[in-house]
């Protein structure tokens, strides 16, 4: 976890991080929304279809299985505007996890999940995709530390 005092600082550090991990980056951020004219499964499958040339049929099976694992079978055919905040977050996280050896970056996750009180839910779903990702990084403001249950300034 990385916490920053100001928006500018956060953005600068995030940019640097993205540049450093460009090839393996899986960003979960409002700055990287889902593609609105694709269903959720297609948004997630896109990464493997494009980078690994996985056939759409195979990709569909993989994504359906993952959504089932997350308990989100119902959102497979939904599109971005009709998703709830939680569903959208799941979809974005799964998409990020599709990158090979993914370095997942959660950019201010509470700005996506505005209804969350603390970070337990985040930890819970990150555990669910643990096998799919290599690293997970959270970028947020320092005043949100408490929501993650973090007391120290250092990264976790």
């Amino acid at each position: 976890m990385r916490f920053f005092e100001s928006e500018e600082e956060l953005q600068e550090k995030l940019r640097d991080f993205i540049t450093a991990h460009k090839s393996r980056l899986g960003l979960v951020s409002l700055e990287a929304p889902l593609i609105s004219n694709l269903p959720v499964w297609s948004n997630i499958a896109l990464i493997r279809q494009y980078h690994q040339n996985m056939s759409w049929h195979e990709a569909k099976i993989t994504i359906d299985r993952l959504l089932h694992r997350m308990g989100m079978d119902s959102i497979a055919e939904k599109r971005n505007p009709s998703l709830t905040k939680e569903e959208r977050f799941y979809a974005m996280l799964l998409r990020a996890a599709m990158v090979r050896d993914a370095v997942v970056v959660l950019d201010k996750p509470f700005s996506i999940l505005t209804n969350l009180r603390d970070g337990h839910f985040l930890m819970h779903i990150l555990h669910k995709v643990d096998d799919l990702i290599a690293e997970a990084h959270i970028f947020d403001y320092s005043w949100a530390k408490e929501r993650y249950g973090v007391t120290a300034d250092a990264e976790d």
Partner: peptide, 22 residues
Amino acid sequence: AVMKVNRELSTLEIFNIDLIDY
């Protein structure tokens, strides 16, 4: 145009998806 306004094009770039190819 909608993809541009919604920053969906930048999403594709973030995920290393070439706009010309895709």
